[in-house]
Computed example of a mutant assay.
Amino acid sequence: MIRHCVFLNFKDDVTEGDKQKHYNQFAALKDIIPGQIADHYGPSASPEGMEHGFTDGFIMDFTDAAARDAYLAHPEHQKAGAALVEACKDGVSGILVFDLEIA
Results as ranks from 00 to 15, higher is better:
83 A>H: 07
78 Q>A: 01
37 I>K: 11
64 D>N: 15
3 R>Q: 12
86 E>S: 13
38 A>M: 09
59 I>G: 07
3 R>K: 15
51 E>N: 10
68 R>Q: 14
50 M>E: 07
56 D>T: 07
41 Y>G: 05
54 F>C: 15
84 L>D: 13
73 A>T: 08
36 Q>R: 14
48 E>R: 05
22 H>M: 14
77 H>G: 04
56 D>Q: 08
8 L>Y: 03
52 H>Q: 14
87 A>R: 07
94 G>R: 10
65 A>Q: 13
40 H>R: 05
89 K>P: 02
84 L>T: 14
10 F>T: 13
63 T>S: 11
22 H>F: 00
28 A>Y: 00
52 H>G: 00
59 I>Y: 02
87 A>I: 06
34 P>M: 05
84 L>Y: 12
21 K>L: 08
55 T>Q: 06
92 V>M: 10
7 F>H: 11
58 F>R: 08
93 S>N: 14
34 P>Q: 04
27 A>H: 14
68 R>S: 11
89 K>C: 01
4 H>E: 02
84 L>W: 11
27 A>G: 02
19 K>S: 11
73 A>V: 11
40 H>Q: 06
57 G>C: 12
44 S>W: 01
72 L>F: 15
18 D>I: 09
53 G>T: 05
69 D>L: 04
21 K>S: 06
25 Q>M: 11
77 H>F: 00
43 P>E: 02
78 Q>P: 01
70 A>L: 14
79 K>F: 00
27 A>W: 14
62 F>W: 12
97 V>H: 13
29 L>A: 00
28 A>Q: 04
63 T>M: 13
37 I>P: 04
5 C>P: 00
81 G>W: 01
93 S>G: 09
94 G>M: 07
8 L>R: 07
23 Y>V: 15
15 T>F: 02
4 H>G: 05
79 K>W: 03
53 G>D: 04
59 I>P: 04
94 G>S: 12
66 A>G: 07
57 G>R: 09
19 K>L: 15
32 I>T: 14
92 V>G: 03
11 K>W: 01
78 Q>V: 00
60 M>F: 15
54 F>S: 14
9 N>A: 15
29 L>I: 02
39 D>A: 15
11 K>Y: 02
12 D>R: 11
4 H>N: 04
46 S>K: 08
29 L>C: 01
36 Q>H: 11
42 G>H: 03
79 K>G: 01
11 K>Q: 12
29 L>V: 01
4 H>I: 05
76 E>T: 00
35 G>K: 06
93 S>C: 04
24 N>S: 13
78 Q>T: 02
65 A>S: 12
52 H>I: 03
58 F>I: 06
32 I>V: 15
64 D>V: 09
46 S>V: 10
51 E>D: 12
34 P>A: 05
39 D>L: 10
31 D>R: 08
38 A>G: 05
37 I>S: 13
53 G>W: 02
40 H>C: 11
89 K>D: 10
57 G>A: 10
21 K>D: 07
74 H>N: 06
54 F>M: 15
66 A>T: 09
73 A>H: 05
4 H>C: 02
66 A>C: 09
57 G>K: 02
87 A>N: 03
7 F>E: 11
30 K>L: 08
42 G>I: 12
10 F>W: 04
18 D>E: 09
